[in-house]
Simulated assay, not measured.
Amino acid sequence: MRIINLNGAGRDVLEQVAILLVDSFKEHWTTFDSAFQEVQESLTSDRISRVAVDKNGIVLGWIGGISQYSGNVWELHPLVVRSEFRHQGIGSALVLDLENKVRERGGLTLWLGTDDEDNMTSLSDINLYPNVWKHIANIKNLRGHPYEFYQKLGFVIVGVMPDANGVGKPDIYMAKSLRN
């Protein structure tokens, strides 16, 4: 496996990434065209867009970064790995690669939002107000939510947006300092 810039890759690679988005996030990208537009938007100069490919040029995963706060902070968006290649270190390698690319551009913090739309944590299906931080401190992973994947990579929960995706469906905000 190698990780390369998506910017400059051939149309075949861009199309593979769009198909990967539709396959993995059907609720957000329902058509190839909407996914392909997302892929194209990732190719601007204020973004980082990297793909993991195998020796045959097959896309195994994709990660993106979006510059914010004058480049001090970057949003990790998106991260996706082909289902048959998950739990093999590809996602971790993509995140570490993105961290290095963000550092090269002077970034200090990398953050992400990881939705809980499917009642996968103890933060879902409840009213988080008025004790939001109490709920965060006592979070439990009920059904394999990816927040623990990010914690293993050094990210910490820095907040939540209650009801971001509807009643009882929060977005969990995580961040990691890149100053080391």
Rank of each mutant, 00 (worst) to 15 (best):
M1E: 08
I3K: 03
I3E: 04
A9C: 14
G10I: 07
R11M: 04
D12W: 00
V13Y: 06
Q16D: 09
Q16G: 10
A18Q: 07
A18L: 09
I19M: 10
L20G: 13
K26L: 08
H28R: 08
T30F: 04
T30D: 08
T30N: 08
T30Y: 14
T30C: 02
T31R: 12
T31N: 08
T31W: 13
D33W: 11
S34C: 13
S34E: 15
A35R: 06
A35N: 09
F36N: 09
F36G: 02
Q37V: 10
V39R: 05
E41M: 12
E41L: 14
S42M: 12
S42T: 07
T44I: 11
D46Q: 09
I48A: 07
S49A: 15
V51F: 04
A52C: 15
V53W: 03
D54Y: 07
K55H: 13
K55W: 03
L60G: 06
G61C: 05
G61P: 12
G64E: 07
G64Q: 01
G64W: 00
G65D: 09
I66E: 14
S67D: 07
S67V: 01
Q68K: 14
Q68N: 04
Q68P: 00
Y69D: 12
S70A: 12
S70L: 11
W74Q: 03
W74D: 10
E75R: 11
L76D: 14
H77V: 07
V81L: 02
R82N: 12
F85R: 13
R86E: 10
R86S: 09
H87W: 02
H87A: 10
H87S: 13
Q88K: 15
G89P: 03
I90G: 07
I90N: 11
G91I: 03
G91P: 03
S92E: 15
A93W: 02
A93L: 13
L94V: 04
L94A: 04
L94C: 05
L96G: 05
L96N: 15
L96W: 09
L98C: 06
E99M: 14
K101W: 12
G107F: 03
L108M: 10
T109F: 13
L110I: 08
W111R: 11
G113I: 07
T114S: 15
T114G: 11
D116Q: 04
D116A: 13
E117G: 06
D118F: 11
N119W: 03
M120V: 00
M120S: 13
S122P: 08
S122H: 10
S124V: 01
N127I: 08
L128V: 00
P130S: 05
N131H: 12
N131E: 14
V132M: 05
W133F: 13
W133I: 03
H135M: 04
I136G: 08
N138E: 14
I139F: 07
K140L: 07
N141L: 00
N141C: 04
N141K: 06
L142A: 02
G144A: 03
Y147G: 03
E148D: 02
F149W: 01
Q151A: 01
K152N: 06
K152I: 00
G154P: 06
F155E: 09
V160W: 02
M161D: 05
D163Y: 01
A164W: 10
N165K: 05
G166Y: 10
G166C: 11
K169E: 01
P170A: 05
D171H: 01
I172P: 03
I172K: 08
I172S: 10
Y173N: 02
M174E: 08
M174W: 10
S177K: 02
L178R: 12
N180E: 10
N180K: 13
